[in-house]
Simulated scan of single mutants.
Amino acid sequence: MARTRRPVVPGWFTGGGDTDGGGPGAENFRLLGTRCGACGAVFFPRVDSFCRNPGCAGTELMEVPLSRRGTVWSYTDGRYRPPPPYVSDPEVPWQPYTLVAVELAAERMVVLGQAAPGVTVADLRVGMPVEVVPGVLGEDAETVWTTWWWRPVPQDDRRRA
């Protein structure tokens, strides 16, 4: 029986393609934010009712795809078992994971996310280019819960950009 693919938080990212962090469809995977029509401010996670800018009373909000690439602003390893919606089997020994805060220059914001599997704090440096890719947060018998990951931009892609 095929499992249903569902985003952990609906409306926060495009469907993308494979969720191995770089397969077909990864180039179309994007986080989705909101742009205020009155002041132009961009927000993530998205909001649909009012502008988060305290100096703006705008209510005309448009969904916008965010930049696929940014630079590492900060990073750390998570050495504790996080609360839901993170899926974790309490019977399995805990494995640390890497969190990355990524600056999106065009949007003038920092977005937090988990690094792709295999990326550790030893692989990251402040200012290095990273890109958003589709990922899997967890799976059960009926559902594959999808999310986003950050991964370093391959050296060959850095030279082309």
Score class of each variant (00 low, 15 high):
150 W>E: 03
27 E>C: 09
109 M>W: 02
151 R>H: 02
132 V>A: 02
14 T>Y: 01
46 R>D: 14
81 R>G: 13
143 T>V: 11
64 V>D: 08
114 Q>A: 10
125 R>A: 11
122 A>W: 07
52 R>G: 13
85 P>I: 06
38 A>W: 11
133 V>E: 01
116 A>V: 09
47 V>Q: 13
44 F>D: 05
39 C>F: 07
161 A>C: 08
61 L>G: 11
103 E>D: 06
107 E>K: 02
128 M>D: 03
94 W>I: 08
70 G>R: 00
55 G>C: 09
3 R>H: 10
1 M>N: 15
62 M>R: 14
152 P>I: 03
34 T>L: 06
13 F>P: 13
139 E>P: 14
8 V>G: 11
7 P>W: 02
92 V>R: 15
145 W>G: 12
159 R>D: 12
147 T>K: 03
43 F>T: 14
129 P>F: 00
135 G>H: 01
27 E>S: 10
7 P>C: 05
143 T>A: 03
4 T>C: 11
23 G>A: 01
31 L>S: 00
14 T>V: 02
156 D>C: 11
56 C>A: 08
46 R>F: 14
55 G>Y: 09
150 W>P: 03
18 D>C: 12
49 S>M: 12
102 V>C: 05
65 P>K: 04
17 G>H: 00
94 W>E: 12
93 P>C: 07
78 G>K: 03
111 V>C: 01
117 P>T: 09
21 G>P: 02
17 G>A: 03
86 Y>H: 15
70 G>V: 02
50 F>T: 15
13 F>I: 13
41 A>S: 14
69 R>I: 10
35 R>S: 09
125 R>S: 13
142 E>T: 07
10 P>G: 11
112 L>V: 08
41 A>E: 14
104 L>F: 02
34 T>D: 10
141 A>W: 07
69 R>G: 12
130 V>E: 00
91 E>D: 15
84 P>E: 12
125 R>L: 05
89 D>W: 07
89 D>R: 13
83 P>T: 15
71 T>Q: 10
89 D>C: 09
57 A>D: 14
127 G>C: 00
106 A>N: 10
145 W>F: 09
57 A>S: 15
125 R>D: 09
12 W>L: 12
80 Y>I: 13
10 P>D: 07
1 M>I: 15
36 C>L: 08
140 D>K: 06
139 E>H: 12
141 A>P: 11
96 P>T: 04
157 D>M: 05
105 A>K: 06
90 P>F: 09
155 Q>N: 12
49 S>H: 12
6 R>P: 12
23 G>M: 01
80 Y>C: 10
23 G>N: 05
42 V>K: 04
130 V>H: 00
134 P>D: 05
80 Y>S: 10
94 W>V: 12
103 E>C: 04
96 P>F: 01
2 A>K: 13
135 G>R: 00
49 S>W: 15
125 R>N: 06
42 V>D: 03
8 V>H: 09
60 E>T: 11
58 G>L: 05
154 P>T: 03
149 W>I: 00
69 R>F: 06
6 R>V: 15
46 R>Y: 10
39 C>Y: 08
36 C>F: 09
113 G>F: 02
24 P>I: 03
127 G>Q: 00
135 G>Y: 02
81 R>C: 12
40 G>Q: 07
71 T>C: 08
101 A>K: 03
118 G>Q: 05
45 P>I: 04
9 V>R: 09
2 A>F: 13
97 Y>L: 08
87 V>R: 15
